Every structure is written in C-alpha cells, then in structure tokens.
Simulated assay, not measured.
Amino acid sequence: MTDELGERLRAAWVADSADALVDVGCDLAEEGRQEEAEECFRRAVALGEDWVWFNVGNTVRELGRPQEAVVAYERALTAGETDAWLNLGAVLEELGDLSGAMRAYSRAGEDAGDPEGFLRLAQLLHEQGEQGSAEAAAQRAAETGHLPAVGLLASWRWERTRDVALEPALREGSAVSGSARADLAQLLIETGRRDEARAELERGAKLGQRECWLPLGNLHAGDDLPDPADAPDGEPAAVDLAAAEDAYRAGIAAGDTHCHHNLGVLLLQRGDATAAEEEFRAGADAGDELAQRALRRLQGPGTG
C-alpha cells in the first residue's frame, strides 16, 4: 500500500464518508488488498449505500467465498444495482447452478442492457445443445454491435451452413475473435484465396489469437483442403513443413492443446516416432480425442 493510499484510507474512516470509502476501497482492490477493500465497502453499506453490496460481492468473490458473493449480489439487485446481474450469473455458473446463471445472464441483457449477458447466455445454451436458442441470444447481443457476439454468431452459422455470405460478419468479428478469424480463413481457402487466408491467420497469430495457429500450421502443411483436387484450378497446395512445425509449436505455447496431435502427425511422417508419441500423449492427457486415438494406433493393439 502506498503512503498516499494509506492516508486516504485513514481519512475516509475518520470522515465516515461512504463516497470516500468506496473510492479508496476500489483502489485497494486494484492493488490486491481485498480484505481492506471489503472492510471499506461494508462500512459504506452500513452508512446506507446499499448498492455497494455489488462491490462487496466482487471482493468476497476474489477472496474465494462465492456463496457470500451470491448473497451480496442479490442484495445489490434489491437496491437497484442491475449491473450485479452479470456478476451473479458468473458466480452461479462457477457454482454449477446453470439454470440460475442463465436467468441472471438473461436479466443482465434485459434489465441492465448489457450485451455480454446475452452472449454468456448464448454460450451456456450452446453447451446445453440448444443451438437455436443460443443463436437467438447471440443475435440479440450482436444487434447492439457487441463484436464478441458478432464473431461467435458468425462462426456458429459458418460451421452450420458454410454460407460464403457470412464473410462480412466473420471479418467484423475477427477483430476480437480468433475463432471467427480462423473460420474466415477457411472461407477464403474454400473460395480460392489461400494467400489472403494465410495473411489473416498470420495477423491473428500476431494479435495473440491462439485459434489461428492450428489452421496456419495446417495451411503450411497442405492439410487445409480435404483433397488436393479441391485446390483452386487443381493446383497442389504449397507445403512448408518447417513453417507448419513452427506454427504448431507456437500454438502449443499459446495453450492450444489440439496442436499436439497435428505436430505428432508431422513428426511421425518425418520418421520420429518417439517425438510423435510424446506429442500424442500430451494431447491425449489434455483430453484431445484425436490425440488419444493416434496414441492408441501408434502403441499398437492391447495397449488400452
């Protein structure tokens, strides 16, 4: 805690000013001093600022007390702090109360006008297999110009329809969504624009969109099309296995565990079965079914 912050804290307590307590509490929370922040926020509540239960909820959530956070957010909502709906939904989702989370996310969109609420509702509905309802919720967020929702909705629709008319939406969403950029690249490949696809993936990789590394590696490896005959004018795709390996390794470093499988395949083709097995095992341990199957095939019958 800086001397200035300490002086402000003491002054807020002496003055018994709710506004000052909230201000210094927020700064304490930003510096990781959650316990002191909680004390400030609870004192502000005691002084009659019931909406500050929202800040109490944020603080106790950071302190690993989610059930208390639920109670605090509900009290904030009672006080009219509708921004608490989104945070309440997140805590309920963490606690496994998916129906409660979906209701809270819906209210975040409806009552607080927060498109992120509709987006998170869409994601939960998608996970539950309710694709129609998921797209409807994402559409409501996208209509506000919320770019993450624009990208997500475009990706879902591309994966379902392969409609090239989705290109503008994928381009718009790619600004914030690696998945949208990867899907845009696939659309470009399928419409004969491989160089543009590579440029998009390279741009996404530089922006830290980890979803771009795997398709970039596949493009370098010549595996982005199901059959060489599908390439424009029947021309075979250019292959750069060194660049493909670099892309897969960069994807792994960025946290895309699916890259282990593709790197393993490349290493196996090179004749390095030992290194390939290590990659397949790493992917399998991370839950990648392709890597699990590849590991079983490499190890042979009877290996489980």
Rank of each mutant, 00 (worst) to 15 (best):
A229C: 03
A84Q: 03
L188Y: 05
A273R: 15
L266C: 06
R171I: 08
A237M: 12
E7Q: 15
C212N: 06
A242Y: 01
G6A: 14
G80K: 01
L207C: 08
Q292Y: 04
V56A: 04
A104M: 09
W158A: 06
D246C: 09
D285N: 12
V22Q: 10
G64P: 11
D246P: 09
A254V: 06
N58K: 10
N87T: 05
L188A: 02
A122V: 02
F280P: 01
L184S: 01
D285Y: 03
E30G: 10
A175D: 10
V265H: 09
G6Q: 15
G129F: 08
S133R: 13
H258Y: 14
R171L: 12
A90Y: 09
D97I: 04
G204T: 10
H258I: 12
G255W: 08
E81F: 03
A205Y: 03
R193W: 01
A141N: 07
S155Q: 05
L28D: 06
W158D: 01
C26A: 15
A229D: 12
A15K: 14
A175G: 12
E62I: 07
G304E: 12
D183Y: 05
E31C: 14
I252V: 12
V164P: 15
E279I: 00
H220R: 07
K206W: 00
T144R: 13
E277G: 04
G64T: 13
G300K: 11
G255Q: 08
L119G: 02
A76M: 04
S174D: 03
E62W: 11
E81V: 00
M102P: 00
A138D: 08
R157Q: 15
L147E: 15
A229E: 10
M102W: 06
D83V: 01
A122E: 04
S106D: 14
H146E: 03
V176T: 14
G57E: 02
R42F: 02
T78W: 08
G234P: 10
R210A: 14
H261C: 10
A231V: 04
A12E: 08
E35D: 15
Q139I: 00
A180R: 05
L9T: 07
A76H: 01
E4G: 13
E135P: 01
T303R: 15
A273S: 13
V70D: 01
A284T: 04
L225V: 12
E49K: 13
R194A: 14
L241A: 09
A254H: 06
R140T: 12
S99K: 11
A244T: 05
R120Q: 15
V71N: 06
A243T: 05
F41Q: 06
A247V: 00
A141F: 06
R10I: 07
E30T: 13
D114E: 11
G113C: 03
E116V: 02
E36K: 13
A11V: 07
G32N: 11
R157K: 14
G132P: 00
P232G: 07
A244Y: 02
A101G: 02
T191Q: 10
T303C: 05
E39P: 00
G255M: 04
R65K: 14
G80W: 00
